[in-house]
Design a protein around this nucleic acid. Structure first.
Lengths: 211, 211
DNA sequence: ATGAAAGTTGAACCGGGTTTCAACTTGCGA
DNA sequence: TCGCAAGTTGAAACCCGGTTCAACTTTCAT
């Protein structure tokens, strides 16, 4: 931490050294990002083309390379962006929950709502497993770590059985996250069921399993 | 089911009309399939090339097209094959389990062992979500259906709380399956932990949640 | 108002990968 | 043994999409 590394307060998700320096540039970048979300969401990474993206965005082919080093770099930027979006959507419901397990139930319900409304986001994050494994891993590792931290803190408050060790709660965090992801796939992306019913059933099992 | 559809008793996974008719052909096809498993497992679908696969297999480029219509067709054949492999590996442990929930615990343990030993298989099935969605969906839908059936039957025997409805158990089947998949990713593919410890922790939660 | 920096354009370059095919080899049944 | 069906070969046709770049336009600070 000694060296004075000026990190550009995480402005825009362009490739480094290619950030827009103008209002116009900002707008163009935004258009490209939006178009990319649509294209990647519909066709997947390898079926998508830079030509297709720029056409959707209404800009010329070459413009793409003023903001991104490559198609991969764009995908990477997008994944990190969506990862944050998911977190930001779910975060608030965790704030105002008295009980931690009720918090998890609501988080699932909120995630299901989000997945239903943003299937493309869901798909892009999933595809990152192959296209940008580092981003994928980071997304799920930070998510799991947060869940585990909540469970451990809940155990301190007596809301989770004290018989569970830290190690066990870390494992269970992954189990809960995996359950959420697949429930999202099945009941929000493939077809939509009532988020509340799904979250209630799952919450019931987890609650009586952990309490 | 009235029509007399003679389905070719699921011989070899070649494209239809391209099945080998000779011992030699059978051998060549096998070599291609094995090479493909390695190539797809290591590099992923789009980074893999037919050239690369045939080189690994030690056959000429053109030979590939005597057995498959396209690279996609090969991938598809492979996914269906691996899907069956996973099932066949886990099935036996379900047979000889007195208690249904103990069966699920052992199934997870067995799945983790399999995933650890066959990361490439795990990866190929995962990539099918994008490359061959139909196969992917079928794989998980049949898996979830089986789990749900076991839970419902267990409820009949009093091993699962009779307060759970069919609908709820179907949801929980997806939750359990998702948990298993992510536990496999984290504790078998990314790094390997003791399958028993992982399965025990998860089994403990599920058992007290469902009983 | 002005000119330098930022942004835009799309034709052309480029490499790689899939697929075809006609000539060749192998194996097996008669 | 013979001959034909099955299988093999790899060069070449074909296609496609990523990336570059030099000319051009717009923006904005002075």
């Amino acid at each position: 931490m000694g060296a004075a590394v000026e990190d550009e307060e995480q402005i825009s998700p362009a490739s480094s050294g290619k950030e827009p320096r103008t209002a116009r540039g900002e707008r163009t970048l935004r258009k490209i990002l939006d178009a990319a979300r649509d294209e990647f969401g519909e066709r997947g990474f390898s079926e998508s083309s830079v030509v297709g993206i720029t056409q959707r965005a209404g800009v010329a082919l070459g413009t793409f390379y003023t903001y991104f080093d490559s198609k991969e770099a764009l995908f990477q930027a997008l994944v990190r962006d969506m990862s944050a979006q998911v977190r930001d959507h779910v975060a608030p419901v965790l704030k105002d929950s008295t009980d931690a397990l009720e918090g998890e139930r609501r988080a699932l319900e909120s995630f299901l709502q989000f997945a239903r409304a943003h299937r493309d986001v869901y798909r892009i994050i999933d595809e990152a497993e192959i296209v940008d494994p580092a981003a994928y891993r980071e997304h799920y590792e930070t998510t799991a770590t947060r869940i585990a931290a909540r469970l451990i803190s809940a155990r301190g408050k007596g809301e989770v059985d004290s018989a569970y060790s830290d190690e066990e709660l870390e494992i269970l965090a992954w189990a809960i996250m995996g359950a959420n992801v697949f429930l999202g796939l099945r009941f929000a992306v493939w077809s939509s069921a009532d988020p509340k019913r799904v979250a209630d059933a799952t919450g019931k099992m987890i609650r009586s399993g952990l309490q």
